[in-house]
Design a protein around this nucleic acid. Structure first.
Length: 760
DNA sequence: GGAGCTC
DNA sequence: GAGCTCCAACGCTCT
DNA sequence: AGAGCG
């Protein structure tokens, strides 16, 4: 072990990291610590595609400018927990990554590139994907490679495959199709060859299968050799040993079409992108099909006419949800129902011998390794329940709504005496579980691997609004009231609720009225707006903000009693063991409505179809505005402008800054917000607080920018030194007095009101 | 990057 | 103790 | 037979 080794704990493994400050990419420069960090952060996603595949390491112990070498066999000094597999009698003992710790250990070996075979355990000799490596000659424009990859994608669809794309991390593009692991390599090669030859026939001047340099000249090599025995291709999310440490990055077909080169994807950017938009390949395994040369009927003849027709409707196809799974007759299917009978529960159904083996899961699916959930074996169900969804009428057994929570295919990865391990592949859920019989009909369901992203850990940045001036009209939208209060993300773990502000601050303690008894849920992430309502049911921002600022248990309890808050929930991001952010808005909201218990502090934010009407009503009621949401849209934490629009109900407001609040945070130099009032017929009307958590300096700048916009530069009641707005803002005592008067009850106190009004 | 071998 | 060496592989093509 | 190729 090198002398300066640093020990880290990854899962249950301890790993010695050596030479962390060694530069591996001098052009960055990038040191080894950053490489380890990269692989640590993408490991759960990386493993989804690489787990169980024999590895080739490309190691750069002296950095990308030093010597590089391949390594396949498992060195005998590897820790005992690094797994391995032998492809045949006389082959290597290939290493196989299974857990995050394995990836970190490999990263420490300065193994920048990880390459994998197309087969994986338990059938390493039967590929479960075909890779088409598009390898352009020098000076072949990237855009043209993309075009060719896109065409290849279409040809593959014509043959009934579901293609996925990634950058190679260098000049090329890899098009990958998942297949069922049922054929030997020669059969798979033959199928691949047929499709590639088809493409080459259509694009004679662009593409070739001929591998010799001379014959290739200026054409792209469609390299099928990556599919051969013992051959590997760079793994999805692997780094490449090139300047800047680019990544072999899975992309959606839409993303691919907009790429101009592969430069956006590097060790530095990929973790953020992944966090932002997830893994485009996540559901890949659910789209495995039989190779086209061995199907009973070839689904689509690959003649040019068919392809043209396909191309025509492709725009629609690509932008909408993926189509139905193909070839499902060849693999075992599964469904999980959310069944809101007398007692809410889930039903896990696995296809086996022509029936659905079923278990009732009273508390949903486990969300994390180590979490176990009871699973009670129930009677087998007929296959037709795979897709059944609806309401079981009152009086019948199990009366109540039953939703398809996830459906796709599954594979048993390991059989044990007391149970089995299985992996779910679907659009909704891709995870490994262990089913373990404890006694009789009682089983325990346990999650095996870490999720890509732990939705229940800490806060999730909420999807934000974009302000617009007019109500977007159309059948594409649904409309909700814009509740004027505190945006809050709720995380529920078991029976514990935590509340997070939009900036990720934990505000749980401020609102003791929100507890899990109001929600029919075991684990979840919900999005809503906390409001305090006035006598006629209008949100009073001043009151709720006061709730946010009260300190001390006693004060909070008193405030909660005086001004009880409710929360209008409008979205659901995670539900009992699976993220739902990628389900369409309507589905998320249907689930949400179902999980809110009546007569609690939680309410469902109703939506309506008529935007104009709601807008008019909102204006009449003095509400802040309405929100238009695009139907079918996903939830993109952190933002995605254009999917969610906020409309101000008043446009020509003249605001005046009448004070500021002291911040409630720990930093003494922060100012809470500007207190703004609107000019009305009969004086100033409090409109709320602008921003929060400014430093004095930032606030001065903001005030300077805003003051000229106000009708009067400064209200008359501000004492002395009228010239310097910044100094005016520093009149803390005075403004605090205004603040408290403004916010007691959300109204201007009598005296102050008079003073503000009349007599300015 | 780590280990085994050689001097 | 320092210095050197090893650490892959397939199948096809060209020479 | 051996080197080259990715």
């Amino acid at each position: 072990m090198a002398k300066e080794a640093q020990w880290v704990q990854v899962g249950k493994r301890q790993i010695a990291l050596s030479n962390l400050t060694k530069t591996l990419d001098p052009t960055g420069p990038v040191v080894k610590a950053e490489v380890v960090n990269y692989y640590l952060s993408v490991a759960p996603t990386f493993l989804r595609h690489a787990r169980g595949r024999p590895l080739s390491l490309v190691r750069y112990p002296d950095g990308i400018e030093g010597e590089q070498f391949f390594q396949k066999s498992r060195p005998d000094w590897a820790p005992e927990w690094i797994g391995s597999v032998r492809l045949d009698r006389k082959s290597q003992n290939y290493m196989v990554a299974d857990a995050v710790a394995d990836v970190v250990w490999l990263a420490n070996l300065a193994c920048l590139e990880l390459h994998v075979t197309q087969g994986r355990i338990p059938h390493p000799e039967r590929p479960d994907q075909i890779v088409f490596d598009l390898d352009p000659p020098p000076d072949f424009g990237y855009t043209r490679v993309i075009e060719l990859a896109t065409e290849l994608g279409e040809v593959l669809r014509g043959y009934g495959y579901h293609p996925f794309a990634k950058t190679s991390g260098q000049k090329g593009i890899h098009v990958v199709v998942p297949i069922e692991p049922r054929w030997e390599i020669p059969d798979v090669m033959a199928a691949a060859n047929e499709v590639a030859a088809d493409l080459v026939r259509r694009y004679k001047d662009e593409a070739t299968l001929n591998w010799s340099k001379k014959a290739r000249e200026t054409r792209v090599l469609i390299d099928l050799n990556r599919n051969r025995k013992g051959q590997t291709a760079v793994a999805a999310y692997s780094l490449r040993g090139k300047p800047g440490l680019p990544v072999s990055m899975p992309v959606t077909w839409e993303e691919l079409a907009t790429l101009r080169d592969a430069s956006p994807y590097t060790h530095a950017t990929v973790p953020g992108i992944l966090e932002d938009r997830g893994d485009p390949w996540e559901a890949m395994a659910a789209y495995a099909v039989a190779i086209h040369t061995d199907r009973k009927a070839v689904p689509v003849a690959a003649d040019p006419a068919t392809l043209a027709a396909y191309k025509k409707k492709r725009d629609f196809d690509v932008t909408s949800e993926p189509g139905p799974l193909l070839g499902k007759e060849d693999m075992a299917r599964f469904t999980i129902h959310r069944h809101h009978a007398t007692n809410l529960h889930y039903d896990l159904r696995l296809e086996q011998d022509g029936v659905l083996k079923s278990w009732a899961l009273p508390r949903g699916l486990p969300h994390q390794p180590g979490v176990k959930r009871l699973a009670v074996e129930v009677e087998e169900h007929p296959i037709k329940y795979l897709t059944w969804e609806g309401v079981i009428p009152k009086g019948e057994y199990g009366a109540g709504p039953m939703w398809v929570y996830a459906t796709g295919r599954y594979s048993v990865t390991k059989e044990k005496k007391t149970g089995f391990y299985f992996r779910l592949h679907s659009e909704q859920l891709n995870a490994d579980y262990r089913m373990h019989r404890t006694q009789g009909k009682q089983w325990l369901l346990e999650r095996v691997h870490e999720p890509d992203r732990d939705w229940l850990e800490g806060s999730v940045p909420p999807l934000l609004c974009e302000k617009v001036d007019a109500v977007p009209i159309g059948n594409d939208y649904q409309y909700e009231v814009k509740w004027d209060g505190i945006r809050a993300i709720f995380t529920v773990i078991e029976q514990e609720v935590r509340i997070w502000s939009r900036n990720g601050n934990d505000i749980t303690d401020q609102f003791p009225e929100f507890d899990a008894t109001g929600l029919n849920i075991t684990t979840g992430v919900l999005d809503g707006e906390i409001v305090v309502l006035d006598e006629v049911g209008r949100p009073e921002f001043g009151r709720v903000i006061k709730r946010l600022h009260s300190r001390g248990e006693g004060a909070i309890a008193r405030a909660a009693k005086k001004h009880p808050a409710v929360c209008y929930l409008f979205d659901c991001l995670y539900l009992d063991g699976r993220p739902v952010v990628r389900d369409p808005l309507e589905k998320r909201r249907a689930w949400l409505e179902d999980l809110i218990r009546p007569d609690t502090a939680f309410r469902f934010s109703q939506s309506v179809e008529d935007g104009e009407l709601l807008f008019k009503a909102a204006k009449q009621q003095g509400l802040e505005g309405i929100i238009a949401k695009r139907k079918g849209s996903r939830y993109s934490p952190g933002r995605r402008p254009g999917t969610w629009l906020k409309i101000k109900s008043e446009h020509d407001v003249t605001l005046r800054i009448i004070g500021y609040t002291r911040g409630s945070g720990a930093r003494s130099d922060t100012v809470g917000s500007l207190v703004v009032a609107e000019e009305a017929e009969d004086g100033l009307v409090y409109r709320g607080h602008l921003g929060s958590g400014f430093t004095d300096r930032a606030l001065e700048e903001l005030a300077e920018a805003l003051l000229p916009m106000a009708k009067t530069e400064r209200p008359d009641f501000i004492p002395e030194d009228q010239d310097k707005s910044a100094e005016w803002l520093k009149e803390a005592v005075y403004c605090d007095a205004i603040y408290s008067s403004l916010t007691s009850g959300g109204m201007l106190r009598q005296g102050m009101y008079k003073r503000l009004r009349g007599d300015i």
